[in-house]
Structure formats: structure tokens, C-alpha cells
Design a protein around this nucleic acid. Structure first.
Length: 587
DNA sequence: ACCTCATGTCCCC
DNA sequence: TGGGGACCCTGAGG
């Protein structure tokens, strides 16, 4: 590639990135603004730009500079007026430099650009770190990303060696198996279901008894029932709800019945075989009267002991439903700030009368449902932002795991201990984005030690030139990343994840698609270990300790240019679900 | 290879 | 305290 060709390439690339917007700046050699910081008072932006570049171009200063020079020539060609002006001046001064300013699409300032460079996202230096939200560094240099593996860093453990800890230990010791079962990460893509749903998947649930059945809900309210072993056996019911399906629960006592909660303000109970449903609750009996009065249901859980369904709306109220009589019990109780959304409800698996709610008012709260009144929580757990979810640990119910929009996963080790502050805060990228289903870190229901949690990751990582958003397995007792699960075929973000209650299977909802993951077979693992050994032998030990062999984070291959993000050379999809067994509708 | 839009929360006025 | 504009890694459909 000759210099002119390269210049043109750089120019085109830049135009593409900045969406056609560009600023042409004229400057003579003497006035090179890079050098001249003292006389730049005429332009505030220049100052910001200079300081911005210092941060942003940390790693590839030279390259940027080269591009700047290279971009001069085509810029003059492209804009005749600028070129003419340049010539005029140039004639006078002898030589002229026209530099094409970079325009940042994030802050609209010039001098730097945010966006993907290959598979690596370059931050806007004017914004705080996208991962930990602290100013002074970018996501690429965030200590939470660099210091430990991929944005997961533990906060120091509190409440250690207290008497409560002792009680906790002795209390759960009888319940947990002494031999920790071998933990297998389902990191091998078993099957992908393309275009099963028409809109993004919002919730997933495994059938509690029928091992191979996965239930899924989407933004349109479509309910999917899918046997992922007999792939053709899939059914969709489109008239259960009219908009976002937020939560699904199956009663263990009657596992043919599915309860669903939706933003259409209804709770529905659907027969899984026939798809015939009946509404249990409708919070909008008078229909649409504008957004200020429309009630939506996000949080829902079952109290199987009492045959109750607990439901919470987007105005902060909790409702009780009797499962059998299908009637409301009592009056709604305000459990979160009035007018704020309750995001999840969870009844403790060990003590079903203990309820955990999380809400948009930046709190998660623990309640005793036997004596429930507004403003009477057993505890209020403060968070930095909106709490996406809060769950009791799956076995003892003694731990709490919350996901908050301040990019932190919080863990409380013992609910009867000091709840003032979490036992741990784990910085993890799961930002809010209006286009994504909120991320929810969930416990592995099979893990008797109650440590493993799964959560999708927002920011991407460069995996051999492809930007992928993995699904993280986190050890909540240390904050360490146990595994990151990804596949080159899945380039979309995966906010919805569900672990199978008994098998080592992970279901993922990513955009419109559903994926099933299984652990690698023993043969595959052996092969991988062999490769890993060979790699270590070649490169020396120490740096190669990733759980997933596919991944080489140090790779900074920009040869793909802009298209690096899209996986153009992705290997063939292992399985693509055809339109066979098209969905049927409710009668 | 563009453009448009859906749309929840934050933050500032 | 409330309304309105802004918004960083979206993704489907046109």
C-alpha cells in the first residue's frame, strides 16, 4: 500500500467512523497546536483536546500522529474551498499543513475519537471509566480490568471472624455437602436458536422437572416452550401477554402450570401443554390512560408453602395473590419509593416468608411477609444506583446477591449479620442500556457451596481480533472470575442467563437468539490442556492462565480495521434452527 | 452501507 | 419535585 493509498484509506476510515462529520483545520507549521499550548487560549476546545489526547493516545501515540499527517492530502482534495484557502496561504508562507480533526462521537469534541478500533473499544477520555465509573482513567486502563482478570476485582472481606460468622458456619455446615462436587463450566456451544423470537429475549427458565425443556419470554410477550434435545419440538404462544414478559415461575407442586408476569400489567397462568391461559391479575382494568397510570409487573415469586403469588409493580407496590382462589389478598403495600419500579422479588428458599425485593429507588429490602406494612422492612440494603436484581442464595437463603447499575455486584454473606454494607463489591461491567434487558447476576442453583454466580458482560474483549461479550462465572466468595464463556458466533451481548437446576447446562438469551451451552467433553479438555502446555512451553509460563483456551487477550490485531468487531471469518454455526415446527398460537 | 427507531434511566434546569 | 433532553460497545428492519 503506497503512501497516498494509505492516506486515502485512513481518510475514508475516519469519515466512516465520524459519520461523515469532520472539521478541517488550517494551521501553519509555526502554529502547530500540538506544540503551542500557551497561545491556544482562543479555543477552549484545543486545550481539552490536548489533554484528552494525552490520556487517550497513551498506547499508540505514534500511529495517531502518522495518521494525522497522512490525512492531509485527501482532505485538501475533498474540500475545494479549503484547498484553495490552503494554496493561497501556502503561497504566502511557502508550506502549509491542513490537519483533519478527529471528531469524537461521544462528546462531539475534536482531537480524539471514541469507538471501535478493530475489536478494541477506545474510550472517550472526557468520560469517566465505563467499567468502574471513576474518572481519571479509561476503561482500557481501569485497575479493575488490568489488575485482575477482566474487570473483576474483590473488595476486602468484612465481617470475618465474628461470632456471627461462627454461627453461620456451624449452621450451614450441616446442610452442605462436605465434598465439593466437581464444577463444570458449560462453555461449549451446544445449540443456537436463531430467530426463534422476533424481539429480544427477556427471560429464561428451565422447567423444574422436565429436564430438557426451556421456557423463554421476549419483549413482545411471546412465550416459548422449547425441548432443546428434540430441537424440532418448540412451541410459541403469542397471546399470553401483549408486551414484555418479565418473569416466569413454575410451581413445583403443579409443574404443568406456568405463571408469567408482564409489562402489560397482568399475571397469567398458562397450561404448558395447551397454551390456554387465564389471567390471575390485571392491574390495568381500565385500559390505557397514559404512561403515568399504566402499571407494569416486573417482580414476581411464589410462596409455595402458603400457595401465594407475590407480585410487585412499577409504582413500588406489592400485591398478594392466592394461587388457588385466584384472588387478591389484602391491599397493595408500598415496599419501595412511591412511583419507583420494583425490579425483582425473591422468597427465601429456606424461609419462604422472608422476601427480598429490589427496586429503582437504589435499595434492596428484606421483608417478613407475615407482618408486612409499608416502611417496615427487616433491612434496607443501600446501593449506588438502580438495583436490577436481588436473590437469596439457592440452598440456605443465607446469602444475598444483587446486581446494580453502578457496575457492581454485591454479596452479603449472612443475612442475619451486619447488613450495613455488603461483604463484597465486585466491579463488573453490566451497564444499563435502554436497548438491553437488564443484567442479573444469578446463583448457580446446583452449587451447594453457594459461591458461583453467572452474569453476562457488557463491555467486549478482543478475542483474536473479534469483539465478544462473554458470560462470566464469578466466585462470589472472592470476586474472582472463574470462567468466561463465549463463542465467535455470538457477537451480541448476552444479558439473560440461566443455569440448569440439575445439569451442567447454561441457557443464554442474547438479542433474539437462545443458546444452550454444555461443558466440554473429557476428550476436548485433554486436547485443550495439551495445547495449553505446548503454548506455555513456547511462550514461557505465567501469562497463560486463562480458563478458556480460545482467548488471547493480548492480541491487538487491528488488521481487520473497522470490521474487526463483526466476525466476518467466524466459523460455521454449529446449529441453526430452521423454521421447522413453526409456533402455534393459543386457541 | 447507510438510516431509523424503539425506549429506561439519569441528570440538569 | 418534575419535565425534558441526553445517552458509550444495540440490533432489527428497511
Amino acid at each position: 500500500m503506497g503512501p497516498t493509498a494509505r492516506a486515502q484509506f485512513v481518510y475514508n476510515r475516519r469519515r466512516r467512523r465520524s459519520g461523515g462529520r469532520h472539521a478541517v483545520e488550517e494551521a501553519s507549521d509555526e502554529e502547530e497546536q500540538r506544540q503551542d499550548s500557551s497561545s491556544s487560549s482562543e479555543d477552549e476546545e484545543d486545550e481539552a483536546e490536548a489533554s484528552g489526547e494525552e490520556v487517550a493516545d497513551d498506547d499508540d501515540d505514534e500511529e495517531e500522529e502518522e495518521e494525522e499527517e497522512a490525512a492531509v492530502e485527501p482532505a485538501a482534495e475533498e474540500d475545494p474551498a479549503a484547498a484553495a484557502a490552503g494554496e493561497k496561504r501556502g503561497g504566502r508562507k511557502g508550506r502549509i499543513t491542513i490537519s483533519l480533526k478527529k471528531v469524537c462521537k461521544v462528546c462531539k469534541r475534536t482531537g480524539h475519537e471514541a469507538g471501535f478500533k478493530g475489536a478494541v473499544y477506545i474510550d472517550c477520555p472526557m468520560k469517566p471509566c465505563f467499567l468502574c465509573k471513576m474518572p481519571g482513567h479509561t476503561t482500557l486502563t481501569c485497575p479493575h480490568r488490568v489488575a485482575m482478570e477482566h474487570g473483576v476485582i474483590p473488595a476486602p472481606r468484612r465481617n470475618t471472624n465474628t461470632s456471627l460468622d461462627y454461627v453461620f458456619q456451624s449452621q450451614i455446615k450441616g446442610k452442605i455437602s462436605m465434598v465439593k462436587p466437581k464444577f463444570l463450566i458449560p462453555n461449549q456451544l451446544e445449540s443456537g436458536n436463531i430467530k426463534f423470537h422476533q424481539r429480544r429475549v427477556t427471560c429464561l427458565e428451565f422447567h423444574p422437572t422436565n429436564n430438557n425443556v426451556l421456557l423463554s419470554g421476549d419483549k413482545k410477550g411471546l412465550l416459548g416452550v422449547w425441548d432443546y434435545v428434540k430441537l424440532h419440538e418448540k412451541i410459541t404462544y403469542d397471546s399470553v401477554h401483549s408486551c414484555i414478559l418479565n418473569s416466569m415461575k413454575i410451581d413445583n407442586a403443579n409443574d404443568g402450570i406456568l405463571y408469567t408476569a408482564s409489562s402489560d400489567g397482568t399475571i397469567s397462568c398458562t397450561d404448558l401443554d395447551t397454551g390456554i391461559g387465564s389471567p390471575l391479575l390485571n392491574l390495568n382494568p381500565n385500559g390505557w390512560n397514559g404512561p403515568s397510570s399504566w402499571r407494569m409487573i416486573y417482580g414476581m415469586d411464589l410462596n409455595t408453602d402458603k400457595g401465594l403469588i407475590l407480585v410487585a409493580d412499577n409504582f413500588g407496590f406489592l400485591y398478594f395473590l392466592d394461587r388457588r382462589s385466584k384472588t387478591r389478598i389484602g391491599h397493595p403495600i408500598l415496599i419501595h419509593k412511591k412511583g419507583s419500579k420494583v425490579t425483582t422479588l425473591h422468597c427465601s428458599p429456606a424461609r419462604p416468608e422472608v422476601l427480598l425485593s429490589s427496586g429503582n429507588d437504589h435499595y434492596a429490602r428484606i421483608w417478613d411477609t407475615r407482618k408486612l406494612e409499608a416502611n417496615s422492612p427487616l433491612a434496607s440494603l443501600a446501593h449506588g444506583r438502580v438495583v436490577n436484581s436481588g436473590y437469596f442464595s439457592p440452598q440456605s437463603g443465607n446469602k444475598i446477591l444483587t446486581t446494580c447499575q453502578d457496575n457492581r455486584i454485591r454479596v452479603w454473606d449472612y443475612i442475619f449479620g451486619d447488613l450495613q454494607s455488603p461483604s463484597r463489591e465486585i466491579v463488573h461491567s453490566h451497564d444499563f442500556n435502554r436497548h438491553l434487558t437488564p443484567f442479573k447476576a444469578e446463583w448457580d442453583p446446583k452449587d451447594y457451596t453457594e459461591t458461583v454466580a453467572v452474569v453476562g458482560r457488557y463491555i467486549s474483549e478482543n478475542y483474536n481480533g473479534v469483539a465478544l461479550h462473554p458470560i462470566d462465572f464469578i466466585d462470589t466468595s472472592s470476586g474472582k472470575l472463574l470462567a468466561e464463556v463465549m463463542d465467535p458466533d455470538i457477537t451480541t451481548i448476552s444479558p439473560v442467563n440461566k443455569l440448569h437446576p440439575r445439569d451442567d447446562i447454561l441457557a443464554t438469551g442474547s438479542s433474539r437468539s437462545i443458546f444452550i451451552w454444555k461443558p466440554k467433553t473429557e476428550d476436548e479438555l485433554t486436547e485443550e490442556r495439551t495445547k495449553q502446555k505446548a503454548k506455555e512451553y513456547v511462550y514461557g509460563s505465567g501469562s497463560q492462565k486463562k480458563t478458556n483456551g480460545k482467548h488471547d487477550n493480548s492480541s491487538d490485531d487491528d488488521s481487520d480495521g473497522d470490521s474487526g468487531r463483526k466476525n466476518k471469518k467466524a466459523k460455521k454455526t454449529r446449529f441453526t434452527c430452521t423454521t421447522k415446527g413453526k409456533g402455534k398460537s393459543k386457541v
